Amino acid sequence: MDTAEPLAASAAVPEAVAGAAPEPVAGATVAAEVPGALPADAGPAPRPRRLRGILRWTSAFLVFAAVAGGATVLTTLPDRRTLPGLGTESDGRHDYPALSVPPIVRSEFGDGTATRRLYDIRLVLLPRPKGALPDTTFPGRDGWLATEKYLSLYADPAPIAGVLRDHGLRHIAADAWRTSDGMRTEVYLLHFDSHEIASMYYRNKGSEALPVAVEKGEASYKPPEGFRKPTFTTLRGRLSEVPDAEGLFGRVAVIQSGDVVAVVLTRSPAGVSRVPFDQAVDLQAQLLG
């Protein structure tokens, strides 16, 4: 039996004990030596370059996405100048109150497009803009306009009176006001018994007869780009190129929607654009549609 190696190992023990360090204090933690390990007080290990590069590009991408998202939100917000009723100073439009449209009850006859409004049509009469001075000779939403007052718009009212009588006009809702720019606006809603009767009046006389304010008009009214004409709504109008005796320019639009024919008439001093007229026509059409 060869005992040389065990003895040698036993002999090495006293030498190791003789040169050993003092015993550790009780409760202290002794870390085993690991090849390549950092000293205990060396702090966190530095991140590899590749990881730092990935984090840097990821942060840059997130910042870019946030900025791009914010720019998209801003550029897709509607232009205030395209929203009726906001009253921007740049184009002269008027500031109307919030509008609401009651439901339309469809009739049981016709081809499906005929409509009868079973509610009070004064609910869809265009309200006055904020700050407008009302014409107290008009009933507004508090009453009905006398047919004779409506007929006074025309130089020869007799033919129109006969057509209104023959087509069974029920009543007229109307309002009028003047705004600070000197523009006078009059709105009339002629209510008939049905879509068909209103359409007959519109085709036979309603859209052809011109009020005195636009008798000298030579330009047909064309709604501006972006005009939101509702379904089953027809529209004609006339713009006066010549001022009247008071130096005012007349504009009129006739709208037929269901059992109602609406007339929007304005008279404006020189220098007032047609933007507020377009706005009034657009809003009244939306209320009817």
Results as ranks from 00 to 15, higher is better:
Asp111Ile: 04
Gly92Glu: 01
Val101Asn: 09
Gly87Cys: 02
Leu62Tyr: 06
Ser100Trp: 06
Trp57Ser: 11
Tyr96Asn: 00
Gly69Ile: 02
Gly70Pro: 02
Gly110Met: 06
Leu99Lys: 05
Arg81Phe: 05
Phe109Arg: 14
Gly85Leu: 03
Val101Leu: 10
Pro78Cys: 01
Val63Cys: 06
Arg81Asn: 12
Thr58Ser: 15
Val105Thr: 15
Leu77Arg: 15
Val67Gln: 01
His94Cys: 02
Leu74Arg: 10
Leu55Thr: 07
Glu89Phe: 07
Thr82Val: 07
Leu77Thr: 09
Gly110Arg: 05
Glu108Gly: 10
Pro84Tyr: 01
Thr88Val: 14
Ala71Cys: 07
Asp91Thr: 08
Gly69Pro: 01
Ile54Gln: 09
Leu55Asp: 11
Arg80Gln: 11
Thr76Ser: 11
Pro102Leu: 01
Pro84Met: 00
Ala65Gly: 09
Val63Arg: 03
Ile54Ser: 04
Val101Glu: 11
Asp95Glu: 11
Phe64Ile: 14
Asp79Arg: 12
Asp79Ala: 13
Thr58Gln: 12
Val101Cys: 02
Leu74Ile: 13
Leu55Trp: 09
Leu83Thr: 11
Val63Ser: 06
Asp79Phe: 02
Phe61Gln: 10
Thr72His: 08
Phe64Cys: 14
Pro97Met: 04
Ser90His: 08
Gly70His: 03
Pro102Ser: 03
Val67Phe: 09
Phe61Ala: 15
Ala65Glu: 07
Gly85Trp: 01
Ala68Pro: 02
Ala68His: 02
Ile104Gln: 10
Leu83Ile: 15
Ala71Thr: 09
Pro84Val: 01
Gly53Thr: 09
Thr72Tyr: 12
Ile104Ser: 13
Ser107Glu: 13
Ser59Gln: 12
Phe61Trp: 11
Gly53Pro: 01
Gly69Asp: 02
Tyr96Thr: 00
Ala66Asp: 01
Phe109His: 13
Pro102Gly: 03
Val73Ile: 13
Pro97Trp: 04
Val101Ala: 12
Trp57Arg: 14
Glu108Met: 10
Pro103Glu: 12
Leu62Val: 14
Val67Arg: 02
Arg80Trp: 05
Pro97Leu: 05
Ser90Trp: 06
Gly53His: 09
Gly92Trp: 00
Ala68Tyr: 03
Ala71Asp: 03
Gly110Leu: 06
